[in-house]
């Protein structure tokens, strides 16, 4: 039996007392016959001696858009880092298209949080996208590479940004370019770590439109870490709610609507409201 995990300090989540953990709540799960893009099997992660994730298991079928939710410090970003192979689990495993996490990075596109990269770096959108295509920073860009960059920028509604310096882009434009970068290798799975945090209202709405299109795709699976209820409502085909352990896995309306999960529903809504206005 698992011990109660020690976790980093976190913001107050809910006024309602948390119910005792009685194992994961599984609601409507993906069809078992579907091809699995990501399989998380009893993933347990410890960082600096602290258990961050404990026995987390779920899977994502081809083309499914999954929102990964939970309070601050619940281990959402750690889970993404484990998917990317940056963090190794102490027990359990994550496989992407049958390969261990970290060995199939061309199959995974990653959109970081806006705050985590250098906005002063002298680079254009084209160079950033081609760098992901090549695995190194380009000195010169070939015609074929430029065409691919243009095509992927067109897909996210940002074709005009191709030769723009990154430093001059708005928050929403920057995230479009990073989404284009993530999509340029035609991945099977795209990972989005709170991509609209710090983006203005208009940019956030436009970005959600693009995510909704990805959600409608039957080819590309996605994991979106978000605190934004609007993003869940518009994009999520399935929701996983974690808090160190897997709390619930099912359809968005099941997790938000079930009376028996009122604490979770309250927590999710409460979380959205407790964030600054630009996070909602």
């Amino acid at each position: 039996m698992n011990q109660s995990p020690e976790r980093e300090s976190r913001a107050p989540r809910s006024l309602a007392p948390a119910p005792p953990y009685a194992g994961p709540r599984h609601f409507t799960l993906p069809d078992d016959s579907m091809k699995r893009v990501l399989v998380a099997d009893k993933v347990t992660v410890e960082l600096s001696g602290k258990r961050i994730l404990d026995d987390v298991s779920f899977w994502i079928p081809k083309g499914e858009f999954l929102c990964l939710c939970g309070p601050n410090g619940a281990g959402k970003s750690t889970f993404l880092k484990t998917v990317l192979g940056i963090v190794q689990p102490v027990a359990g495993s994550i496989e992407i298209l049958g390969q261990p996490a970290g060995t199939a990075n061309k199959a995974v596109g990653y959109v970081p949080q806006r705050k985590t990269f250098d906005h002063d770096f002298p680079a254009t959108a084209l160079e950033l996208i081609v760098a992901n295509l090549r695995g190194s920073w380009p000195l010169r860009v070939t015609r074929d590479e430029r065409d691919r960059a243009r095509a992927v920028l067109r897909r996210v509604g940002g074709e005009k940004l191709v030769d723009k310096p990154l430093a001059g882009l708005s928050g929403g434009e920057t995230q479009r370019v990073f989404l284009a970068r993530a999509l340029v290798n035609d991945p099977a799975l795209v990972i989005l770590d709170e991509p609209t945090a710090g983006v203005d209202v208009r940019g956030r709405h436009e970005f959600l439109d693009i995510l909704a299109e990805i959600s409608a795709s039957d080819e590309l699976a996605a994991i979106l870490v978000t605190h934004n209820p609007a993003a869940i409502a518009r994009c999520a085909e399935r929701v996983v709610y974690i808090d160190g352990r897997l709390i619930a896995w099912g359809l968005p309306n099941e997790l938000l609507g079930q009376e028996s999960l009122s604490a979770i529903a309250f927590s999710m809504k409460d979380h959205g409201k407790s964030l600054p206005a630009d996070e909602d």
Binding site: L84, G85, I86, Y110, F117, D118, F121, L128, R134, S136
Partner: peptide
């Protein structure tokens, strides 16, 4: 090492994910 150094300077995490 220019092209890899440049990528790692832009963002170590993304560069690492690209195999640098």
């Amino acid at each position: 090492t220019w092209t890899r150094l440049a990528y790692a300077t832009f963002d170590p995490e993304l560069a690492r994910l690209s195999g640098v």
